[in-house]
Design a protein around this nucleic acid. Structure first.
Lengths: 182, 182
DNA sequence: ACCTGAACACCGTTCAAGT
DNA sequence: ACCTGAACACCGTTCAAGT
């Protein structure tokens, strides 16, 4: 019944009411509380299964086309979600995760596994000479993730919804950051 | 009576109640609504006067010590706020601003003036040869802001509170991004 | 066993009455 | 003019009663 994501997308996490979610799902309040122990718990569940869907896709792309193109592919998918209007929801999940461990614990777990995958890809790319070998792979991964989220959030804030422009901006930054120094 | 910021810092925007804020401010509910038309309006007001305090400080530093050191100085101040526990509040303001025009309109105005100042500083730095002249100054400014916020948010999410480490991470990224190409 | 929905507790907002 | 605080409307959560 996670199809009640629709309510959060439409009205935001704090504006959407449990009654609306129940109506959308076609169940009663009591039944909803059988599946989720609280409203916060619902974001926790959403956050949990949204992440890490595309990790394998990224790994294959990194091997076939190189690290930077693979990152840009992942970035494009991310920016398109923002352009679709999920920017506010992502920001709300972030805010909730910073404040509330119920949300952050599962999110951090799946985040850690994505970081792991990207870190390994960076190490491989460093061996191939695609990425500056003096960069710490884990810090570089964190920086990349932070940059991605930062650009997505800022563009949502500025009401800029062109995913291509965001990608161009991101690509220029990433190329310069990762480029091997002479 | 903005000293009721304390409540938001302690408990978060959505957890803090109007009753708490009234108690902290020593006034009644009715009186509070004389000064602010709603709870959301309070964040709008907070967001408005938080921004742009340090713009002049940045301008002086940029002229005296160069662009990159000046940016890092501003970044340090920003990361320290996050480390102080304002990370969640900033994220909440962001989320609220993306959803709600009451919050975003004043915020975007003061953001635009900061962007303006940084953009001019980049143009000056490009003339001095400190910053790659092929970068679009406005896009570069936006990227810098996005990066700053992204790193701050991500570190708050990961519960990393070392402002020095954040600054090091940010500095490495910025130096590589802005460095003149040969 | 599982679901319903009225009831409860709580919180943002208002407004008649006070000063 | 300005403030008070009881009252109102609303929403997350629970639980006695139903199937």
């Amino acid at each position: 019944m996670d199809a009640a994501i629709a309510c959060f997308r439409r009205r935001g996490f704090h504006q959407a009411t449990m009654a609306e979610i129940c109506a959308e799902a076609g169940i009663s309040a009591g039944a909803l509380y059988r599946y989720f122990s609280s409203k916060t718990d619902i974001i926790g569940a959403i956050a949990e299964d949204k992440r890490g869907e595309s990790d394998e896709a990224f790994m294959r792309a990194a091997e076939q086309h190189g690290f930077v193109p693979a990152v840009c592919l992942a970035a494009r998918a991310f920016f398109e979600k923002f352009a679709d209007g999920d920017g506010a929801l992502i920001a709300e999940i972030m805010a909730e995760a910073i404040r509330d461990d119920t949300v952050s614990t599962p999110l951090r777990a799946s985040d850690a596994s994505s970081v792991e995958i990207f870190t390994r890809a960076i190490i491989a790319a460093q061996k191939r000479g695609e990425v500056d070998a003096t960069l710490d792979p884990k810090i570089a991964t964190n920086t990349l993730f932070a940059t991605l989220e930062g650009i997505g959030l800022r563009r949502a804030f500025c009401r800029e919804i062109d995913a291509d422009a965001a990608l161009l901006q991101f690509r220029a930054l990433v190329e310069r950051y990762l480029e091997p120094r002479k």
